[in-house]
Every structure is written in C-alpha cells, then in structure tokens.
Design a protein around this nucleic acid. Structure first.
Lengths: 294, 294
DNA sequence: AGGAGCTATAGACTGTGTCTATGAACAATA
DNA sequence: TATTGTTCATAGACACAGTCTATAGCTCCT
C-alpha cells in the first residue's frame, strides 16, 4: 500500500522468481529461508497483490508477479552490470586517464611512463590533451582532464602541484658553430649570434627572457618556433643557437650533432610539476599513474 | 570491496546524482542529510571508489560516479515503472481477466456481468476461452485461465467451486408441435417424437440421459448439435423437440416461437458453478469479478 | 507410515540505518 | 572583514527492521 519499498526487497523477489524457490533464493543471497519468506510477504503486502503461488515444490509467479518480474529482471541485470563495471574501474581493467601538457613534455618526459602504464592497464583509454599552461589549468578546472604536466612554478590556490623531475635548459648549437665548442660565453657575447627560441607564451621562453633582463640585456630571437622538434632541427641545420631543455636533446648531444654552449652564468633550473585539483579526489586511474611517476 | 551492497544505497545514490545535492536527495527520500551522507559514503567504501566531488554548493559526479549513474539511472527508472504498473494492476486500470466456459454460458449467463465489468474497468483485457468442462478444468490447472464457469456438480479436490444461479433445463418445441402445448407428457410419450440434444460430451446431455435411464428408457436423439443456438433454431423450424435450458430460451418462449413441453416427471435442476483453483490466490481482476457476480 | 522436500509462523536478538546536534568549509552578502 | 546562509561531514545515541533459530503444516514420494 505504502509504495515506500526498500529496494532490497526487489533483490529478494528477483532471486525467488528466478530460482522458483524461496529456499534456493535464500542460498543465493546468503540468507535463511524464513528471511526470504518474510521479505516476499512484505513486498506482497506493500502492493496488496499476491506475487507467487506457493506449492510444495517451490513457488511460481502469479500473473501480476510475472508483470513485476519483467521490470525487475532488467533492473537487477543493470545493477549487476554496474557492479561489474565498478570492479573493472577499480581494477583498472577499464576507464580513462586524461592528461594535459605540452607536446614536448609528453614526448620527452611522459612517454616512457605512458607506455609503461598502458602496458600494465591496456583497458584504460589514454587521452592526451596538449595546450599552453593556462589552457591546461582551465581544462583541469572544468574537469576535462585528470591531471596536468607543466613547468613550475604554478601558484594557484585551487591547484595542488607535486614537483617532479628537474630539467635544465641550455643553449645548443650545431656543427656550423663548432668553434664555440670549448668557449665559455658571456650573455652579451651570446647575443652576437642568432638565437632560436620557443614561442612567446611558453614558460621556458619567459624564464630566459627574464634572466637576460636581470643582467640588463634584451633577448630577441632571430627565429621563433612552435615546437621543440623545430628548435632542435634549426640548431642542427646551423640556423642559430637554440634554447632547449638539455634532457630533450640528450640523443643529439651524445651523437654529436649538437653541442652545449657554455655560459659564464648559471641558467635557472626548470622543475616539472604535476598539477591536480586541490581537494578533489583523483580517479583510480589517475592516482595509479601518479604513483607510477613517483 | 565486499560487493554485497544493500540495493537501497543505489536509490540514495540515484537521487543524490540526479539532484546534485545530498540535502535535496534527503528531502526527496524523506531522510535527513546525514543519513544520505552516510549512505553515499558506504557505497563509496564498498567500491573503494569516490563517486562524488563535494563542493560548497552541492555534489557532482566523478568520472567513475558518472559511469555508475548511467547504469543505475536506467535501473531506477525501471523500478519506478514497475511500481506504477503494480498500482495500476491493483486499481484494475490494467491487467487481464481470463475466463473459461461454454459458449452458451458466456452468451446467456455471463454476458451482462462481462459488460458491466468491462465498463467499470476498461483497462482490463478480457480473454474468453470456450471448451468442454474437462478442457476448462485442464486450462484452470495449467494456469491458462483465472476462473471457469461450468455446470455443477464438479468434484475435484484441487478445485473450489462456488455455486451460482440455478438453471432449469426443459424440452421445447415450435409451432409444428402446437398440439402438445397443453398436454402433459410422460417420458415414453416424449420418446415418440424426434428429440434434439446437445453433443455427447455436454453435462446437460449426460444428466438427461441418466434421468431417462433411471426410469428404464433409452434416450436417443434424432439430431445432435454442437451449439445452443442450433438447438433453438432446429426446434423453431419444427425438426424436433429440443432439450435446452429454459433461461436461455426466455425470449423465444415469451414471443411464442417456442413453447415448453410439460412432463409428468420433474427434471433435475442444473446449477452453474464458478470454479477456481483451491489454495491459489486469485488475481485482483478475477476476485473483483467474482464479487461482481455474487 | 515414514521421510524429505517445500513454505509459514513465532519469538528473540542484533546491528544497521536512522535521528539530533554540532563542526568545518565555502560563498555571497553587507 | 565580519555576518549570514549555504553546503557536506562527523559523533553519539537509539529504535526497530531484518535477521536468526526452532517449529509446525503441507505435499509428494518411497
């Protein structure tokens, strides 16, 4: 009558109808037979409708019981699927991981971790979202990505930033400037050469510009490019001296197609930070990935 | 972790997700906010997964919470539909009523009740199943019909029979035998005339044959037909004297197209019984119909 | 007749899901 | 920067709903 049913009763009803036996339903639900009997009675009383015929070999649905079952069966199946799905999400057999960052960080820093993670959890879909630092922060705040990988420092009260590895930016040149290989340049000497920098809105660009400024110099690039690859490529071709992250040109430095230009001042180190939303729980996949990186 | 959830928790989850607020969910469920908070926490703990982001203006689903919701929403909608349907069944706004009986009983006895019932409950589908008494009993036992309307007596321990109206069978003839109108015949006198009987397996036929037998006569029909309508039609056309239920030829007797042949013995009355399965609950529609007939 | 199923009922107990009261965090006012 | 009104979380107390065990009644089968 009251129609304010405990949904638990439907679970009992489902198993009673499915097995055709209150005793078997009790076994399936880890209950005793009287409990099941009681639950079914409750459900019947609440509707004012008899749902089962009771006979000596079990129970069978009445006309009305069969109607109810046609709905409840679907409903219970959905719940079972939901529970399976949640286990899968928990076990990282399924789900998604959405990361924001710059192309270069993806390629030179995150790639090995991503490969590792993907191998461990092939069921997790990876979404890599690249953009500038402000864009990444915006994505994070609107929930489009789970975490962002950017250069420090980040000072946003809504964000929690975990410092990761330290990178060292430096100036590199190719064979055309081989004479500089063993020299130690001052900043103003460097400015005699064409400099290639990353585009204006990058944090590395801002950092080095400020450094020159603090010594009273104006750093004005000859060439400005939009990707680390081009930065490397142009330096190798001898178009100028590129300001890049040393770790990102490790291969080129080793094989000798690029060499580092020594300076008489120390360049500031760059820290990579992993940003997440403060006070917001991470998805299982995201927190697992964070652990992997640490 | 345990995955042995009380399904009641999903109801709470559904409303929390739907309204985006634990407080509003509590209102919808007639609970207090802490109860809802507790329920959600339980669900989250059981999965080991955070389902909601909590912020100062309510809650919103996490990635995983949204996955869960996509399943649970459907499930809850189905349950709501089921509950609505049960109310409809209870109120007889929907459902079905399946009755077994002979054509003649449907037409001459049940019809007014059926019309009445259908007018009161237009949502109930009527299924009329005609057959012989043993067939009706079989239908009843296999659950194909809710109740059967047959002639008494019925002696089956599995059946419960409620006696309804009493019918009186009699012999009727048409104009060609007008000379018998005021006569009172004995059984052997009647046997001088062609007799028209209903088919062998009918209970009325069996009853009258036995009566003749008890007086030492053999009743052998000239014509044997399969419907009451034909019984009437043949008598009117003068093909013989028909044995029919008086109540079923009331119209013909009144308009004078048939008259009753008086006998010097009393013919046994026939009782109509409504059969249902003993110890089996009736559907709401069926029990309502039973009341209507009484 | 006896036994082995099934479901229903009675009575006792436990623990879960309630409640109230309060705290803490945040947002939107003044 | 207080003030007020939201939100959700937590603590502690309590009642009763949903369990259990034990038993009875019924039907079917050997």
């Amino acid at each position: 009558m009251s129609m304010n049913n405990n949904y638990e009763l439907y679970k009992v009803f489902y198993w009673a109808a499915k097995t055709g036996s209150l005793t078997q339903a009790a076994r399936a639900l880890y209950l005793t037979q009287p409990s099941v009997s009681y639950a079914i009675k409750q459900l019947e009383d609440s509707f004012g409708i008899t749902l089962f015929y009771r006979n000596s070999k079990g129970v069978s649905l009445t006309q009305e019981g069969a109607v109810l079952y046609s709905y409840i069966e679907q409903s219970q199946i959905l719940i079972s699927l939901a529970e399976e799905k949640m286990v899968a999400l928990k076990n990282l057999d399924s789900g998604e991981l959405r990361i924001g960052g710059s192309d270069s960080l993806f390629k030179h820093y995150l790639l090995p971790y991503l490969e590792d993670f993907h191998q461990q959890h092939p069921g997790i879909k990876l979404y890599l979202n690249h953009g500038t630092t402000p864009e990444i922060i915006a994505y994070l705040k609107e929930g489009t990505i789970d975490l962002g990988v950017v250069r420090m420092p980040i000072a946003d009260p809504l964000l929690e930033v975990r410092e990761s590895i330290q990178l060292q930016d430096c100036f590199v040149a190719g064979g055309r400037y081989a004479k500089l290989k063993d020299a130690v340049l001052s900043l103003d000497m460097l400015l005699q050469y064409p400099v290639i920098l990353f585009s204006r809105n990058s944090r590395a660009r801002m950092a080095i510009t400020e450094l020159f400024q603090s010594y009273g110099y104006l750093l004005k690039p000859e060439i400005e490019v939009g990707s680390v690859d081009l930065l490397i490529e142009f330096a190798r071709k001898g178009l100028g001296i590129s300001y890049v992250t040393r770790e990102f040109v490790a291969k080129e430095l080793e094989e000798g197609s690029l060499f580092e230009v020594q300076l008489d001042v120390e360049l500031p180190p760059a820290h990579v930070g992993i940003m997440i939303m403060r006070n917001m729980p991470l998805s299982t996949a995201a927190s697992k990935f964070m652990k992997l990186v640490e």
